Simulated scan of single mutants.
Amino acid sequence: MVTNSKDYTRMTSQYSAGTDVPRLMIAQACFDEHTTVADRLSQVRQQARWQTKRWLNQVWQTTDASLSHLAESSVAQKTKCFEFNIIYTQQGQPFGFHPDFGVRGVSVSHSGIWYAIATASQPSLGVDLQCYRPFGTSARQWAFTTEECTQSMTLLCATWAVREAFLKSHGVGLPHLLRTIDIDWQQQRVSDPAANLSERMFWLVYGLYWVCAICYCPESEPPVLETLSTAVPLTVSSARSTSLC
């Protein structure tokens, strides 16, 4: 479903008040023994879409404290009949809409057999997951500065993930000259003034096979990693985060 800018503006007025805490989920797709390699990409996408809707309902219908007053009202009974739906703007940016809870920001990414889902009460949210891979000459010239091209494959994938998540948080997709996006690794901030794209905070999660970046509004609290369907050790690039495994 695609909505126009007028509908989007009207619905975004229904965002919940209070502190915004982005939530991130990373999962591995499941396949049966008959799934061919050619079918895997399609199944990863299908599972990511299904899990996105399921997770939106789980997060916002059970943990949104600002709506706790509905618990004893007639609205609460009506709410049980509805679920979040994923709606897309004309630019292709998704968001979750619920007739009672309003609009929630959402972003989805997949790479290989992995996918990541992020949600927040604000729409300025983007996530990108990259399985570790080398980059060819053209991709390096387009996505990285000369200095960045000397970095390891892991750091190049992290740089790519941050920049693509940043674009998603603005509702902008590829193609875009990624190397012009400035990353402040110490302050965990990313911006592109030349393209008139405002600053975002970013947060990184490193896994054994991938790196995942989430970009969000500077006014928001640091993200929370809610669910992870794997026992692979992780490193989270936030001093406020606890060790996860």
Rank of each mutant, 00 (worst) to 15 (best):
V205G: 02
F31P: 02
V37C: 02
T52L: 12
K168T: 08
R45D: 07
I113H: 01
R23Y: 03
S243G: 12
I26A: 01
D128L: 00
R179W: 07
C157H: 04
G96S: 00
W50G: 07
A143Q: 10
S138W: 07
P222T: 06
L178Y: 08
C131S: 02
C81W: 08
T146M: 08
P22Q: 14
S42H: 13
C215Y: 09
S74M: 09
M11N: 04
T19G: 07
A118L: 04
W50T: 13
T227I: 12
P175K: 09
E72Q: 15
Y209G: 04
N57T: 07
T235R: 06
I86D: 08
S138T: 12
R140F: 05
Q122V: 05
F166M: 13
L156K: 10
V21G: 03
V127K: 01
A38H: 08
L178F: 09
V21S: 10
Q61F: 03
Y206C: 00
L67P: 08
E148P: 12
M201T: 11
T235Y: 07
Y216H: 10
D20Y: 05
G173E: 04
K168C: 05
Y216V: 04
E219S: 15
Y209H: 15
A139Y: 01
R179K: 15
Q93K: 15
S74H: 13
L125M: 11
L67E: 00
F82Y: 15
R10D: 11
C215L: 06
R23E: 04
L24Q: 03
N57A: 03
T79P: 04
F97Y: 05
M25T: 06
